[in-house]
Design a protein around this nucleic acid. Sequence first.
DNA 1: AAGGGCCTCAACCGCTATAGA
DNA 2: CTCTATAGCGGTTGAGGCCCT
Length: 296
Amino acid sequence: MVRTPCCKEEGIKKGAWTPEEDQKLIAYVQLHGEGGWRTLPEKAGLKRCGKSCRLRWANYLRPDIKRGEFTPEEDDTIIKLHALMGNKWAAIASSLAGRTDNDIKNYWNTNLKKRLKRKGIDPITHKPINPTGFEPINHKLGSSGSARLLNRVARKYAGDLNRELLTGIIIGNSTIIADGSRNSCEVHSPTTTLLNKTAAISNAVTLNMFNNTSTSSDSCSFSSDLDVLFSNEEIDNVALMGELKSILSYGSADAGDNSVTDEMDFLDYWNEEDDLEKFVSSLDSKTGLFMSLSEE
DNA sequence: AAGGGCCTCAACCGCTATAGA
DNA sequence: CTCTATAGCGGTTGAGGCCCT
């Protein structure tokens, strides 16, 4: 069944309001008050549907409407209330004097949502965006060690990191072929193996940092870390580091070279240690190795 | 200067909630 | 209780302006 329209279609004007129409509406509401929207257009001499009049008044003509930029305080309020209530624009608007639900909805969709995303916060859940799509678990140990590991990996092989390649591996693409125009890199290794190994190294360095106050772990000495912690493991250090290098880098820049290049997608995106922490935390939770090793 | 793409925001649409007969 | 009219809400659209090439 076709829904009956709120007003007759013939002769009803749509689209942007003219100043003359606004004046007619303002004059009528000032004289008779709000309400009676269905009959208002005819009485006010407007060729508009009542619903359109109500919306025009509520979102634009009402005298108490606040115009202009949203203040940082208003931003905070909207974000906090959205976290609590979700897309309940009218409810949110009721807490912001002079702002309409439409204003807030538009402002959210065009500004605040993007701002949160840029900060790595999911605008729907208001939680940090997890790049692997897996929920992080609580660690007995913080993942700052893992973050430091990745920072050092980044610096060690920093010439030219490729976020897409790395992300593809983390989220489960088994084979990713990088841009052939710049030191292409093809990864064939099973994803789970890479994840396990990467997480194991994270653990190794984290545990090493907790147990060792020397500065050796800050000097990019992965091989010695691995020798100490994985001497009895079936891990080939050279092959492992080669894989890591494949994952994280196109190039073969000098160790410690942090110079920023146009191609440093990975560092552009993951340039904050917090981001790296989130990433490694997710990685740890996906493999489950962090907990099992740290509990030993 | 032109035109294509992107962004903003006013307005519309479709639906639900509510009031009152 | 049911039906109808009206109000209100949230999602979506599209005109117009801006920016970039």
